[in-house]
């Protein structure tokens, strides 16, 4: 329980840091830390497959994408000219929200958790993924193809001008 709460607190702190950091590279790295915390939490929830995906894809691939994106636009002045005033208010806003939510949300969530219907055991993850959720896999493949097409259409092949 203490380990769980510590991980959640670390994720929240890293998320605040990711949003408030002036340097976008720091933001990307802090986002990776949020992913690592989420992944450890998933391991703690006894969901190892989701945790492995989260660790390899979100903490790995997405961080690489972000860092390459940031370094491609690094020379730009527009990112530094961004207004940081609103972002600096984040801890205050989060504090107000956190204190207000502390009185209302946990009782509501406890009531919500009381309405649960315990499901029948669905079998191992392989059976669920390949048999029960097979249309999802089709959707995933379509989504990946859509991503490739988006990037292909955003960066078309340069034509040589005569």
């Amino acid at each position: 329980m203490i380990y769980h709460t510590l991980l959640f607190s670390l994720a929240v702190i890293a998320a605040i840091w990711a949003v408030m950091a002036r340097n976008l590279l720091t933001s990307a790295i802090m986002l990776a830390l949020v992913s690592v915390c989420a992944s450890l939490l998933l391991f703690n929830f006894n969901a190892p497959w989701a945790a492995v995906f989260e660790l390899s894809v979100c903490a790995g691939l997405i961080t690489v994408l972000f860092i390459s994106g940031v370094s491609l636009i690094r020379a730009s002045t527009s990112t530094t000219a961004e207004k940081m005033t609103y972002l600096k208010v984040l801890p205050l806003a989060l504090g107000i929200f956190g204190i207000a939510a502390w009185f209302y949300l946990p009782p509501f969530f406890a009531e919500l958790a009381g309405w649960k219907y315990t499901a029948a055991e669905a079998g191992p993850i392989g059976k669920v993924l390949w048999e029960l959720r097979r249309p999802d896999l089709l959707g995933q493949i379509a989504m990946l193809a859509a991503g490739v097409f988006v990037i292909k259409s955003v960066f078309p092949k340069r034509r040589t001008v005569k």
Binding site: L42, F45, N46, A47, W49, A50, F53, E54, V57, C58, L61, I62, L65, F66, K116, Y117, T118, A119, E121, A122, G123, P124, I125, K127, V128, L129, L132, R133, D136, G139, Q140, M143, L144, A146, G147, V150, I151, V154
Partner: peptide, 24 residues
């Protein structure tokens, strides 16, 4: 709800979609 396997399958789908959205 003791339905962790199904939740994991949905989360895996969600991670794939997330990557595509970020890349785009």
């Amino acid at each position: 709800t003791n339905n962790l396997q199904l939740a994991q399958a949905i989360v895996i789908t969600m991670i794939v979609i997330e990557v595509v959205v970020v890349a785009a």
